[in-house]
Design a protein around this nucleic acid. Structure first.
Lengths: 225, 225
DNA sequence: CTACACAATATTGTTAACAATCACAAGTCT
DNA sequence: AGACTTGTGATTGTTAACAATATTGTGTAG
């Protein structure tokens, strides 16, 4: 119950972020988490420290823990880092993917399409991110895999912040094209498609760059004055 | 004194690792850290959690905190990740380096050479790692910079584990060649030199790959039988 | 009616005491 | 002598109480 408590909190929060149930800025009260996970504050605090280290939670002194609110700059940096990391991951996967691996990828892509067609939006979002994590698992480099995990989480936050709630998440067939390139052993096509896919994902969300007004006046000012 | 306490512990431990004062496997007792940094166990615990998240400290339940002991596999993974990250960092730096930046790099390289010539080994080690961190600061991408920080720390541990204590750390002039390529705006040369430098660093330490015997018998068996 | 000051409440930060576990050493038995 | 058991001390894990701070609500003056 010891490690389990902390890990339950961490993985619970991360899953909630991945499924866009937890949105940026939401407060994570210690008492609330204590009751939800039936543990004491020490465990909650440790879990929050771990989440802070992964940059998905911001700890403000004497105020509490909040889901991180990535800035536009941070968003761009995250996506650039993803392109760098996923490029190497793809190279590794291409080199060492077995027939089973490719079958697993194809199976996952099919699940994604079914979730989309069934309009299980929450599940579709989760599976869409999971595709990249599967590549991370397959690449044979735990360090890269851990980095990717963090980046995908942060991406999920960014998407939930900046993208329209009804916008299509991913090009449906882009993941499939990536698997095709892996199956064909075509490194040039693979790298190009990874790059294109991430650029497309980044551009599909409108990252406002000029959010220099930290006050709510411009947003919530009543129209009548 | 609050945030300072935890950050003092974290940065203190990281600096000690960077200078090879703290070696892999050393125990970090809570009581010891409390006395050294004049704080209570809660702060120490939080600092250790942060260090664990950065993979430089391993927390073993009911046993305590220990400086991480990277395996050969992990070592290779760290270096592969470094090549991927530092490649992008170098591209960014090349694109946006100012004259001041280049001057700063040249100044640093000169400090490195002086430290080496003065045989201030500890300082030379620290500066050698710091060169890469300066590139990270200059690249304009905090995400990449944070990843690099973690990787350089882990590399420092790896080097202190696997390299002979008297071995030359880095080729003296490799950093200088990198700065030259940046100053000349030569991307091809820059990327090649970064790649070469990291490969050279990795190969300069003898990472044993066949440590498949988990018992000490083969190693510590008295010769007389 | 607005703005400011003050009080009440809730939340986080800190500390200390207690419990559980582990490492080491002494002792016992074969 | 060697291996096993037991007991002691030290270290980590857990919990609760207390202090400090922020937030919210209330009341009063302008």
């Amino acid at each position: 119950m010891n490690q389990t408590a902390e890990q339950s909190i961490v993985s619970g929060v991360l899953e909630a972020i991945a499924e866009h149930r937890l949105k940026a800025g939401v407060k994570l009260g210690e008492q609330d988490l204590c009751e939800i996970y039936h543990c004491n504050r020490a465990h909650v605090r440790r879990a929050l420290a771990t989440l802070e280290a992964q940059k998905v939670v911001k700890l403000e002194p004497n105020r509490g823990a909040f889901i991180a609110t990535p800035t536009p700059d941070e968003a761009r940096n995250v996506f650039q880092a993803r392109r760098a990391i996923e490029r190497v991951i793809a190279e590794n996967v291409l080199r060492k993917a077995s027939a089973d691996d490719i079958a697993r990828l194809r199976d996952h892509v099919e699940q994604e399409q079914q979730a989309r067609q069934s309009s299980e939006r929450r599940n579709a979002i989760r599976l869409s991110g999971r595709f990249h994590l599967i590549l991370g698992e397959m690449c044979g480099n735990e360090v890269l895999d851990e980095f990717l995990n963090e980046l995908v989480m942060r991406s999920s936050l960014i998407i939930s912040m900046y993208s329209a709630s009804q916008a299509p998440l991913c090009g449906d067939e882009e993941h499939e094209l990536i698997v095709d390139a892996i199956a064909a052993g075509d490194e040039t096509a693979l790298l190009e498609r990874i790059e294109h896919h991430l650029h497309h994902l980044e551009r599909s969300i409108a990252i406002e760059t000029d959010n220099t007004s930290p006050n709510l006046k411009d947003i919530l000012q009543p129209p009548s004055g």
